[in-house]
Computed example of a mutant assay.
Amino acid sequence: MSTRTLARLGVLTAATSAIALSLVAPASAHVTATPSSSAAGAYTVVTFSVGHGCEGSPTTGIEIQVPESVLAVTPSRNPFYDVEKKMEQLADPITDSHGNEVTERVASIAYTATTPLPDGQRDWFELSLQVPDAEGETLSFPTIQTCEKGETRWVEVPAEGQDADALESPAPAFEITAASAEGDHHGDETAESADESAEESAEQTSTSTGTGADADGSDSDEGSSALGWAGLGLGLVGAVLGGVALARTRRTA
């Protein structure tokens, strides 16, 4: 194969790679939502990642809208932002998974920057919540990114059968998967850990009172008896020796 042919192939490969990268780059720049668990009914921490500003302008605020099927959300603190929960009243009170009556829900979480996020840097925001018991559904969080100049509204939700990658400004989202077979046992694990700690404490207490000793202190009694008999034996030996010495003294006298 000639040098000219190889050069042409090299140029073609480079052009193809550049086109591929140009197609991938916009998708990777979207605001994304990544849950620690997507299982139905699970407690999860959803991480929202922001990778750029608004056409070069630094980011000054992020407001994440909470899906209607999610009632409660706990936001994580971010050292460069003030955080605010925005509540809304429910049309009709409902009962949550713990049997409590709920009259309002978290409508959105707003992060306002105390120090703007430069366009060339990324940041992330974490929300703790319970995934709705709705396997197969997509949980979308329309997000508004405010910048020093302009804003980007990541609020587009794909229609049924539409590919989210085809949208220009898709809302961060993830699909709810099947519930875990083990369920949520964080309470059981805590109790089990406490039981194990109690058992270890009991073993340490037993060891500190004497290795292998019974609760009634029988080993201690046996040791005391042995010392008593040894003392008595030494006393008898002393008495015999004393008597012999006295007898010799009388004879000499």
Rank of each mutant, 00 (worst) to 15 (best):
A134W: 03
W124P: 00
D184P: 04
T143S: 02
S169V: 06
W124R: 14
P142R: 01
Q162P: 01
L127F: 05
A173R: 12
G150M: 09
A179K: 09
G136Q: 08
T138C: 03
D165S: 13
K149V: 13
G150E: 10
T112R: 05
S140Q: 02
S169Y: 06
P118T: 08
S128F: 04
W154C: 03
A173E: 09
P142G: 02
A159M: 11
R153P: 06
F174W: 11
R122E: 13
H185A: 12
S169A: 11
R153A: 11
W124L: 12
S180K: 14
P170F: 00
K149I: 15
A159V: 07
T115M: 12
A134V: 04
G183Q: 14
L139E: 04
G183P: 12
F141I: 04
G136S: 10
T146C: 03
L127M: 08
A134T: 07
P158I: 09
D184L: 05
V155P: 02
H185G: 12
P116G: 05
L167E: 06
A164Y: 05
L139G: 00
D163A: 15
A171W: 01
P118I: 08
Q145G: 02
A159L: 12
Q121H: 13
Q130F: 03
D163Y: 10
E126Y: 06
A178S: 15
C147W: 01
Q145Y: 01
S128N: 07
F174I: 09
P118R: 07
T138S: 13
G150K: 04
D133R: 03
T146P: 02
P118K: 05
V155W: 07
E126F: 10
T152S: 05
I144A: 02
T112Y: 01
D133T: 08
R153H: 12
E160M: 13
E160C: 10
P116T: 00
A166C: 12
L129I: 00
D119L: 03
A181I: 12
T146E: 07
S140Y: 08
A173V: 06
Q162H: 06
A173P: 06
I176E: 02
P142V: 00
L139T: 02
E156N: 07
Y111H: 03
F125H: 04
A171V: 04
P132E: 06
E168K: 14
C147F: 08
W124I: 06
E168Y: 07
P158A: 12
S128V: 07
L117D: 00
L129M: 13
T152F: 06
L167V: 07
A159Q: 11
K149H: 14
H185W: 14
T146Y: 03
Q162W: 07
K149T: 15
T143I: 01
G136P: 04
D165P: 10
W154S: 04
A166F: 11
Q121A: 10
E156C: 08
E137C: 00
K149D: 15
F141Y: 01
P158M: 09
I176C: 09
A166R: 14
F141A: 01
P132M: 01
T115I: 10
E182R: 15
D123T: 05
I176P: 00
T114H: 04
G183H: 12
Q121P: 02
Q121T: 09
T146S: 11
W124F: 14
T146L: 03
P172G: 06
Q162V: 05
T143D: 04
